[in-house]
Computed example of a mutant assay.
Amino acid sequence: MGSVPETFGDLLRRWRRSRNLSQLELALRAGVSARHVSFVETGRTVPSSAMVLLLAEHLAVPLGDRNRLLVAAGHAPAFRHSAGEEPSFGRVRDALSRILRAHEPFPAAAVDRRWNIVLANSGLAVFLDGVAEELLRPPVNMMRLGLHPRGLAARIRNLDEVRAHLLPRLARQADNSGDPELAALHAEMVSYGSDAPAPAPDPADIALTIRLDHAGAELRLLSTVTTFGAAFGVALDDIAVEAYLPADDETARMFRIAGEDAAGAGPSGWSSL
């Protein structure tokens, strides 16, 4: 027998609980009564599309999942799914390319919600030395590239610290989205580690520092993430820019030398946006 599809109330309840909110807290945020939220969750009231979007906004639900909420409530999706449906997406891609190029000679990549690289600049080549060929077949997954034993992990000197930073973030993404592919990715990444306790983060650190072996030297890179708060389409809402900046002058110098050698190289697309 097949599984019973989740109702709108089921989905809303799961999102509310994932945000650690009671029905009353959600109602106060959305400016509606707790009784109305209760009736919506139990199926006694069918919400309008406007109410679905209002509740989803206050639960910070990703655009793709807002479409699923709308459909479950009997309404049409409100957000475009693919880049090809958006007349202006060519300009979005150009803007992403400009952002990535602006980070050169330092590494940067645009990744989707499942950590697949959709666009990268020439600086990311420093991460690819010695990486197993199968990890470079499209779609290249940034999380797998970093933590797989045959990937970048073999060159990361503070791997336990990097894992302690990335794995909880990936776990939160999987829990918040309910995406089985993210859950599977998290389980895979956990399997590559040891049972040793993770090091406690230094409260003085403002960003993750990655210590990377490269060409007989150590590169020290600060990891940063940029997301797009004004996204109106599902494709762009799912994209983040992972950028890496030098944490010391010597690392900056080495990248600038490498950048001069590779002058003229532009962003590279491993898969299509």
Score class of each variant (00 low, 15 high):
229 G>W: 12
185 L>I: 00
192 Y>W: 10
219 L>G: 04
192 Y>T: 03
191 S>N: 06
180 P>S: 05
184 A>K: 06
182 L>F: 03
223 S>Q: 12
188 E>Q: 05
215 A>H: 07
222 L>I: 07
195 D>M: 14
205 D>A: 15
184 A>Q: 05
202 D>K: 12
206 I>H: 15
221 L>F: 06
193 G>N: 06
232 F>V: 14
180 P>H: 03
218 E>C: 13
211 R>F: 04
182 L>V: 02
214 H>I: 10
208 L>A: 07
188 E>L: 02
187 A>E: 04
181 E>S: 00
215 A>T: 07
200 A>N: 09
200 A>R: 14
227 T>R: 15
219 L>R: 11
228 F>A: 07
221 L>M: 11
183 A>I: 01
208 L>C: 07
204 A>Q: 11
178 G>C: 01
232 F>D: 11
193 G>V: 01
204 A>T: 12
212 L>R: 12
188 E>A: 03
191 S>D: 01
200 A>H: 13
201 P>G: 08
184 A>T: 00
206 I>C: 14
221 L>E: 07
206 I>A: 15
221 L>H: 07
183 A>G: 01
191 S>F: 03
186 H>K: 06
227 T>I: 11
206 I>W: 15
223 S>V: 09
212 L>K: 11
201 P>N: 11
231 A>V: 06
231 A>H: 06
190 V>K: 05
214 H>P: 02
217 A>H: 06
220 R>G: 03
185 L>Y: 00
219 L>W: 11
217 A>W: 04
194 S>M: 09
216 G>H: 05
201 P>R: 14
196 A>W: 06
228 F>E: 05
202 D>T: 10
198 A>K: 13
206 I>V: 15
201 P>L: 14
178 G>L: 00
221 L>W: 08
190 V>N: 02
228 F>Q: 08
206 I>N: 15
221 L>P: 01
202 D>A: 11
228 F>S: 05
181 E>N: 02
182 L>D: 01
216 G>F: 03
187 A>K: 05
207 A>C: 13
181 E>R: 01
185 L>E: 00
210 I>D: 05
195 D>C: 14
192 Y>L: 05
204 A>F: 08
216 G>N: 05
232 F>R: 15
